[in-house]
Design a protein around this nucleic acid. Structure first.
Lengths: 240, 240
DNA sequence: GGAAAACGACTGACATGTTAGATGGCTAGA
DNA sequence: TCTAGCCATCTAACATGTCAGTCGTTTTCC
């Protein structure tokens, strides 16, 4: 099974960042299964790189809570923790609410234009079969929101919180909320900001969240091995 | 000049975490000056450790924005960025407001007891000459707040945001707000939570913040070399 | 003198070697 | 059958080696 896209030999970009991005993407998109055991040496071999850049990536991913490193024993992809997902949601909602409120105050024409252009591309992607295009645009949308509020630090944090939520999202891709609904909510947020109407934008934002809560219990029941349960610490799931 | 407290040779704790903690503490407490150039090898020598654990620490500290690693050139302690400080404040306020609101709902007797005990110790430390004792208790207070809201993830993020604010705080220790005032505000927050009165707790929290804003310009004028100025501005977020 | 090439002393990026600790399987002894 | 001890084999932690890139200085050549 190919989990990682191989490193471009001719790129001048250092190996470290590329390895980090690859591993992170593999985790968030569930190509690496929650609970799966991986090892630095093994991953390094798959990339054809040395252990060092992989080790660095592991250090960072552990800090984000996407990996659990057990000293001297091994490393496992963090299982999806329902509590972490819900916590991440609360935090993201708090930060994004502050972001939207600030965006209403300091919106600039070019930021608004960028947001509108992004939403337009979302509409274009709504019809397509491939949902990943939309998810990338969604990511971009929330990044632009932070830029519009001149609160770049917010995006850094949202990115981390989002990673936990996104795994659930990928898991629920089949029965997920129709993309059209999400695009409509995005539109409403932008409209609120454009009008400088904070309460309208916040209302749209609030509606935008809270989709995951409903799907979470069903997914947990369907894929129990991917979730962290209170008693957890069951047998490691060896996948190769 | 001793910047790092030497590693306890007899501790069984691995050196990696200890080195990380030491370096981070040295940055936040300004024993390492903002703008100062440091190197992995040099720091490793000071600890009497190898470069590896220091390198790992650098990786993590760069992710928090406390270090700027310039590939192949060197590493500098991040200068205090007024924008980062203000952004961190906005974010912290947003998260902590959500935390307090949640704490009002799910407070449990033992959490409240822990908060009250902490505040009591704060009062005891208010008279002392050494302000660091209070700052540690303050840190603990906000961690307990997150625990009380059963939102541990919030503390992780606040910790990072706080680090940027705390450097300013240490810089302004001489003319800082009297500790008694801060303790009073903490007390008000706890009282609000204890009563389940979210709006009262939030009001106390709001008053609690916004001390830094006033001192920031004066400090920037007094120690320009420690601050990042606009011409040296970190890369603005690219809007595509 | 002045520009440019060469050098050397640094840096972190990357590679690899070494070690302590955790684990699981095996066997010896009851 | 069970248990205690040994051992092979994992792991990440830690140590060290090598390298390419950056930069300030010196040297070279006109």
């Amino acid at each position: 099974m190919t989990v990682f896209t191989p490193l471009d030999t001719f790129s001048s970009e250092p190996i470290g960042p590329r390895v980090y991005r690859e591993i992170r993407d593999a985790i968030v998109c569930l190509r690496l299964k929650p609970g799966q055991i991986i090892s630095e040496a093994d991953v390094a071999r798959q990339f054809g790189a040395s252990r060092q850049p992989v080790h660095d990536a592991f250090v960072r991913l552990q800090a984000s809570g996407l990996l659990h490193v057990l000293p001297q024993r091994g490393t496992r992809v963090a299982r999806i923790s329902p509590k972490d997902v819900r916590d991440a949601q609360v935090i993201r909602r708090a930060i994004e609410a502050a972001t939207v409120a600030r965006a209403c105050e300091r919106r600039r024409p070019e930021s608004l234009a960028a947001l509108k252009a992004n939403v337009a591309r979302q509409e274009a992607s709504a019809g397509e079969r491939e949902p990943r295009a939309f998810l990338k645009l969604d990511e971009e949308f929330h990044r632009l929101l932070a830029a519009c509020a001149d609160l770049e630090m917010a995006w850094t944090i949202i990115e981390d919180a989002k990673s936990h939520m996104d795994r659930v999202r990928y898991l629920s891709l089949p029965q997920t909320t129709p993309v059209a609904t999400l695009v409509r909510q995005h539109k409403a947020i932008v409209a609120g900001i454009a009008a400088g109407d904070a309460s309208a934008a916040l209302a749209a934002l609030t509606e935008h969240f809270g989709e995951i809560d409903k799907s979470l219990p069903a997914l947990e029941a369907e894929y129990p091995e991917l979730f962290e349960h209170d008693e957890a610490r069951a047998e490691p799931m060896v996948v190769r």
